[in-house]
């Protein structure tokens, strides 16, 4: 899955779904695991809606080129974002999509990510946290306790328990 000890991860979604925070959590967790990381993002002029991406490179050594090229993992939360950013991935990539995505590739894991965020936390912003849960269970790279701890630091204190529940719900989506 990884090339030269490098893992390229892409979150794609709409503004307001928490994908930037999800990327930041993953990058910060990687540092705590003794790796290096880079986090980049692309978004349009609007602060809500539209298609955006939040990219993380995790590397055993120093990160060379800091931008994601052909991701090893894609987590796509909207159909628009999947069509714009979800396709150009590695052949053996893990692809995780929300049920909103109309035509995911064969073998993609399809899960009710955004709906779960709304149900448990009450807001779309937690979708990235649910996505992190799915991702963390889909590949054995990230220390789950470190991810939990990093999420807890990043979310408002009043929503910490709900976000950790959302993360756990994401993990349960992987059979």
């Amino acid at each position: 899955m990884t090339t030269n000890g490098r893992l390229d991860v892409r979150f794609a979604g709409a503004g307001g779904q928490g994908i930037v925070m999800a990327g930041e959590v993953l990058a910060a967790a990687a540092l705590r695991m003794g790796r290096s990381a880079a986090h980049s993002k692309a978004y349009g002029p609007a602060s809500r809606g539209g298609a955006s991406r939040s990219d993380v490179v995790v590397s055993d050594g120093a990160v060379g080129f800091p931008l994601v090229r052909r991701p090893n993992i894609v987590v796509a939360l909207t159909d628009e974002a999947y069509r714009k950013y979800g396709h150009d991935h590695a052949d053996d990539a893990v692809v995780i999509v929300d049920v909103d995505v109309a035509a995911p590739r064969n073998g993609a894991l399809v899960a009710p990510i955004v709906e779960t965020a709304r149900r448990i936390v009450g807001t779309d912003v937690a979708s990235g946290v649910v996505g992190l849960g799915v991702l963390s269970r889909s590949l054995d790279v990230f220390d789950v306790d470190i991810l939990r701890g990093t999420i807890a630091e990043r979310v408002p204190a009043a929503l910490e328990d709900a976000n950790l529940e959302a993360f756990a719900a994401g993990r349960e989506m992987v059979g």
């Binding site: 930041e24 990058a27 540092l31 290096s36 990381a37 880079a38 986090h39 980049s40 993002k41 120093a62 990160v63 800091p66 931008l67």
Partner: peptide, 9 residues
């Protein structure tokens, strides 16, 4: 813009 908005270790 990319360098401005990218986080590196």
């Amino acid at each position: 813009e990319v360098l401005g908005h990218t986080a590196e270790t």
